[in-house]
């Protein structure tokens, strides 16, 4: 059957366009305008051309924050995706236990970011926190407020704790959609556990795993609240990720021009990576993956 062509139907999209214009397009345009100017307040602006962009491209501070951000996203994806798959593979497939495990797995996802940050901020403290106190008691000199490596480990473990269940739930949904016939065929062929995983489960999970990687990447790339509450970006600048640095610049120092230029570059990187993921995902769909 031919698809009906009705261009007038586009007018029905108008309310959404207006909403997006107010919530995204107009603010983004304002950010572009700010990025080329300097202001000292009172809505008075001075033209600065490409100055802020040039400064930022040569700023060690921004490159370091970007490096830390990429390292953080890469580490948490490298841990959360395999761990999520492992958890999903071991979750009960049906019955009361399946429902119970699903509820338990969803719990960390329901906790607001700032509460997660506060939980780990206290949990890791050497004086009153269970984790910090225990580590200290067994002789490990753990202190996330002074040691950059400890701060990184804490922030990463916190993210893994908070978000691995999202990956597990997505992978679980992918696994549940595999018909039993595939497993029966594998059994007849006497396929090993690894081969069942490699040739049946993994290809069938590819689509949802791609979504999981995309979600985790985007979320970790703009992470702000959790590390801000736990470490405040410290010790020194050790856990100052892009968004923490951006907020420091925009609201701490009130440097609107450089912060706007920073935001635009941040936005471009996110746009590029989202496009790559989106393209890979839609191509996977077309190949029937």
């Amino acid at each position: 059957m031919d698809k009906t062509v009705n261009h007038k139907a586009w007018f029905l999209v108008l309310p959404v366009l207006v909403l997006v214009a107010f919530s995204a397009v107009i603010p983004l345009m304002t950010v572009v305008n700010y990025a080329f100017q300097d202001t000292f307040g009172n809505n008075v602006f001075f033209w600065n051309g490409l100055g802020w962009f040039e400064d930022l491209l040569h700023s060690e501070r921004m490159w370091n924050a970007l490096g830390r951000q990429l390292a953080f996203s890469a580490i948490i994806i490298a841990i959360e995706i395999p761990l999520g798959i492992f958890v999903a593979l071991n979750m009960p497939k049906r019955g009361v236990w399946a429902s119970l495990v699903l509820v338990l797995m969803s719990l960390p996802l329901l906790i607001p970011w700032n509460v997660v940050g506060t939980i780990w901020q206290i949990f890791g403290r050497v004086d009153i926190g269970l984790l910090g106190y225990t580590l200290d008691a067994v002789g490990i000199d753990y202190n996330y407020t002074q040691n950059p490596i400890h701060a990184w480990v804490t922030v990463i473990v916190m993210d893994v704790w908070h978000w691995t269940s999202l990956v597990a739930l997505l992978a679980y949904a992918g696994l549940q959609s595999i018909p039993d016939a595939y497993y029966q065929a594998a059994k007849i062929d006497q396929a090993s556990r690894w081969k069942v995983f490699r040739y049946i489960e993994l290809p069938k999970m590819a689509g949802v795993l791609m979504i999981a990687v995309l979600l985790r990447f985007m979320d970790s790339f703009m992470i702000y609240t959790e590390p801000f509450v736990v470490t405040g970006g410290g010790p020194g600048n050790a856990t100052t990720f892009l968004s923490i640095d951006l907020v420091k610049m925009a609201l701490g120092q009130f440097d609107l021009g450089p912060a706007a230029a920073f935001s635009l570059m941040y936005f471009l990187v996110i746009l590029l990576i989202s496009w790559v993921f989106y393209t890979v995902m839609t191509n996977l769909d077309k190949r029937g993956g």
Partner: peptide, 28 residues
């Protein structure tokens, strides 16, 4: 005035909007 418009940035957006409109017409 709060959007801090300047001629070059306005021109930039006009060009982008023009491109989008032109490509929409082309597509139709």
């Amino acid at each position: 005035s709060w959007m801090a418009w300047t001629t070059p940035t306005a021109l930039f957006f006009v060009i982008i909007a023009g491109l989008l409109i032109a490509f929409t017409i082309l597509a139709v």
